[in-house]
């Protein structure tokens, strides 16, 4: 599936400034893995040692928090937009 990941400003240092990254993935977990393969260091910012989203890290498919869907196993369809949104609104760049 061709999907797009939206990158928040504090993580754009890992993506050479890119606000969006397009890739092929069938699930959210795959999309994160693809992103991590292309951009070293980004996975550690998103996932804990057990591979779960860290505290204050929210992943959305469209407008839905993946925690309310199937978590990282949430399937993706062509054209889906995955957004990485910190649950921290203030202070960050």
């Amino acid at each position: 599936m061709s999907v797009r990941i939206r990158i928040p400003t504090p993580l754009r240092g890992y993506t050479a400034g890119a606000a969006e990254v397009d890739l092929e993935a069938a699930t959210v977990a795959e999309a994160i893995a693809q992103l991590a393969a292309r951009h070293e260091g980004i996975a550690e910012r998103l996932l804990d040692e057990a591979g779960r989203p860290r505290a204050f890290v929210n992943l959305y498919v469209g407008t839905h928090d993946v925690r309310t869907l199937a978590g990282l196993a949430t399937p993706l369809a062509d054209g889906d937009v995955v957004s990485i949104v910190p649950a921290v609104a203030g202070g960050t760049r």
């Binding site: 504090p10 921290v88 202070g91």
Partner: peptide, 20 residues
């Protein structure tokens, strides 16, 4: 100083180029 992502509510990163 908070890590830049996901950050800590209300605290700004400081000390790196680009930090306001």
């Amino acid at each position: 100083i908070p890590e830049t992502f996901p950050g800590i509510e209300g605290l700004k990163p400081y000390g790196e180029p680009g930090d306001i």
